[in-house]
Design a protein around this nucleic acid. Structure first.
Length: 732
DNA sequence: GCGAGTTATGTTTTT
DNA sequence: CATAACTCGC
């Protein structure tokens, strides 16, 4: 929750619904879909509905709201609390909900409730093993690509057995083998990956009618935010959860779907009516967040997406602030420019937490950071997972994972010799060999170390000591987490190891301290704290969860992480071909459209001031390369201002022209770089005439295909940058 | 068994 | 360019 937004406590937006819409939104039983553009208060609709249901006598614990991030869940809980309806309502992400379900019905689902949740790097280790076990080479089957393929299958709820029956070509058959082996490894380690959480929960719900009924009774009203970004597994879970009562309320905006690459299926929202025939659809088209100029830019951009239902953003705010596009020489001067602009804002009394800087890829934060440090501008980089990815943190967590789930071999291998205790590769190989033959897990073999003949006595002693250490930790596994984390850190020797590193280990030591504090916070917040729950929760942390709206710092984040947030002042940097749209989506119009939606999300985060920038040169992989301004910039509609060199969007002037030409332009839209036209219609020195600005001389022409721009010095003294497709320039 | 140094590798977005 | 993976010498 943003303490700064004036609408914090009164939550006004949905008050602008018509009486009949309010009735439909708040009190309706049965399926309901709210299609709502950015800034229309759609998340508030859910909050209001929770409050309205409670007011109407529905016990809060019969309500289940699903959000996109843990952060959003937390905000919604607080908002619901303001409305007097928080106690007992289940508000969480899909993944957290699935963890809860899987733990609760563990015996029905035939899983051990102490399962570990495997992240990317854990998964990579397992899939590498799987590829090797299948006698394949990782040069033909790269772990990353294989994992991607498996993830896609899981998101579609195709399990290994099913896929085996479908696989008909060589690639699929091989993939199917790896998939099966990978699943087997995860099962042996009592681990689930992110996709498993959804898949297992979906299957449990679909196969087991008792569970379905049970949960249907528990959650009589289901509310889902950001429905446009649900994947097929989540869709099926939602369907099953609502199957008995049909009280499903989804909100979303197809134009803000930005997770297709992760399996999000936009059909979920488009086909809602078909799935729930008596669904009521409410559209919220008014925008209460942004100025007309910002919405104009966003509107024009998104109009370029062909696979889209026409939807306008209706501005309700009066004109204010400024929308500008600024070119810079390179990423340093871009960062400096942003820093200077921020300085200007703070001089006017703007507080830093009303400022957001967005970029396409995380790596872009570096140039920003350097300039911000130099200019003494406090900032926060919104990357929640970063902390938990640090070596020292992963080490501590690995100990904790083994305590909860001794089968977790990935975690065990991480800690068995960290800090070094004389249990090296040779020893581990011998134990693994024994484990394989005795059909035991690695940890079970450690317990029977005396029976492993191949090991020397001295090594056996070392292993026994390690086992004794771990078994000692287990005594404290129940109850509050913080004391155990502290104990593990000290008694494992990790603390001593870091202290001995001196200055080098200072940061790590501090981080470990922070982890202990975080555990204490968890202990306070959780109803019944337990180590399993703690570990399973932090495994589901996302970048966006790290955003601290209250702290007086500029927020820097990817546009993905910016989803659902809003700032008075927004900077979007690096809007260049190859970055936005990203090069990996360059050859595919569907992916370009997703990149466009991502930019749309970025733009519509801005309430008052929006500055979009690009650099003419940028360092990529150590090399400084010439860049090309993003095709999206030209789609916004450009015009040149007197105070060169600076582009400005002039909403009224260009918009009518853009409107007139839209039909034609869209059908003609092509990727500008690929279809580079050789015959330039304009050349430097050409004399041209413009309807409005009169006669001028061409200064510069940039061939961007359909989006070509021409810089013209008009005889009136003005120099303007015009898009050839809008400007209707005639050569004389 | 350990760690320093070298070489390969791979580069989006994230629950 | 940055990091991960790997090799080699102690």
């Amino acid at each position: 929750m943003t303490p700064q937004s004036p609408d914090e406590h009164d939550i006004p937006a949905t008050g602008k619904l018509t009486a009949s819409q309010q009735k439909a939104v708040f009190h309706r039983e049965g399926p309901l879909l709210v299609i709502a553009g950015p800034g229309s208060g759609k998340t508030r609709v859910i909050t209001y509905r929770i409050a309205a249901l409670v007011e109407a006598g529905v016990p809060a614990q019969n309500i289940c709201a699903i959000t996109f991030t843990n952060k959003a869940a937390e905000e919604m809980r607080q908002r619901a609390f303001v409305l007097g309806a928080s106690a007992g309502a289940h508000i969480s992400t899909f993944h957290s909900l699935c963890v809860r379900i899987l733990r609760r019905y563990a015996s029905v689902a035939q899983i051990d409730p102490n399962f570990s949740i495997y992240d990317d790097s854990d998964q990579t280790k397992c899939v590498k093993q799987a590829i090797a076990d299948c006698g394949l080479d990782t040069s033909n089957f790269s772990p990353a690509k294989t994992l991607d393929a498996i993830s896609t299958l899981k998101n579609k709820l195709i399990d290994a057995e099913t896929f085996l029956t479908q696989a008909d070509d060589f690639f699929s058959k091989t993939l199917s083998k790896i998939y099966s082996r990978y699943q087997q490894i995860l099962t042996n380690l009592n681990a689930l990956d992110f996709d498993d959480l959804l898949m297992k929960a979906a299957f449990l719900l679909e196969i087991n009618a008792d569970v379905r009924t049970d949960l249907g009774n528990r959650f009589k009203f289901l509310l889902i935010d950001e429905y446009q970004d649900t994947n097929h597994a989540q869709y099926r879970i939602a369907k099953a959860l609502a199957s008995t009562h049909k009280n499903i309320c989804a909100t979303g905006d197809p134009d803000q779907s930005i997770y297709r690459w992760r399996g999000a299926d936009i059909r979920n929202i488009l086909d809602f009516e078909r799935d729930w025939p008596d669904a009521v659809i409410v559209r919220l088209e008014e925008n209460f967040r942004s100025t007309p100029a910002i919405l104009e830019a966003a509107d024009r951009l998104i109009a370029n997406n062909q696979s889209r239902k026409e939807k306008r953003l209706l501005a309700t705010r009066p004109a204010a602030g400024d929308v500008a596009i600024e070119p810079y020489e390179d990423e340093q001067s871009e960062a400096l420019g942003v820093a200077e602009n921020i300085r200007r804002l703070t001089d006017q009394g703007v507080s830093l937490n009303h400022i957001g800087v967005f970029y396409r890829v995380n790596a872009q934060s570096r140039a920003m950071e350097e300039q911000f440090i130099r200019n003494k501008i406090p900032y926060q980089i919104v990357r929640g997972v970063e902390f938990y990815n640090r070596k020292e943190i992963r080490d501590v967590l690995a100990y904790l994972k083994v305590i909860v789930n001794p089968s977790d071999q990935v975690a065990l291998l991480r800690v068995i010799n960290t800090p070094a205790r004389g249990i090296g590769k040779t020893t581990i190989d011998k134990i693994l060999d024994y484990a394989g033959r005795a059909n035991l897990t690695l940890y079970q073999s450690l317990l029977k170390v005396s029976e492993i003949g191949t090991l020397p006595e001295s090594t056996k002693t070392k292993i026994s000591q390690f086992v004794k250490l771990m078994e000692g930790f287990k005594q404290d596994a129940n109850g509050p987490v913080e004391p155990l984390v502290e104990r593990v850190f000290t008694e494992s020797g990790l603390e001593k190891m870091l202290i001995s590193e001196g200055v080098e280990g200072k940061d790590a030591l501090e981080n470990a301290g922070e982890l202990i504090s975080a555990a204490a916070v968890y202990d306070k917040q959780a109803e019944t704290p337990s180590l399993v729950d703690y570990l399973q929760q932090i495994a589901l942390f996302s970048d966006a969860d790290a955003y601290d709206a209250a702290s007086e710092r500029v927020a820097m984040m990817t546009m993905h992480a910016a989803k659902g947030l809003e700032f008075d002042n927004v900077f979007i940097v690096g809007v260049e071909e190859g970055l936005l749209p990203h090069e990996r989506s360059a050859d595919n119009e569907t992916e370009i459209e997703e990149e466009r939606r991502l930019f749309f999300v970025g733009i519509t985060r801005a309430k008052t001031n929006l500055r979009i920038s690009f650099a003419r040169y940028r360092q990529i992989r150590g090399q400084t390369l010439r860049t090309v301004p993003s095709q999206f910039l030209f789609e916004l509609g450009l015009n040149f201002s007197e105070s060169a060199p600076r582009f400005e969007i002039l909403p009224d002037e260009v918009s009518t022209k853009a409107g007139e030409n839209q039909q034609y332009e869209i059908s003609n839209h092509q990727s500008s770089i690929i279809n580079h036209k050789l015959s330039s219609p304009f050349q430097r020195g050409d004399i041209v005439v413009h309807q409005k600005f009169g006669i001028g001389t061409v200064r510069e022409y940039t061939d961007m295909g359909d989006n070509s721009v021409v810089v013209v010095a008009f005889n009136s003294g003005q120099t303007r940058t015009l898009m050839t497709k809008y400007a209707r320039l005639a050569k004389i």
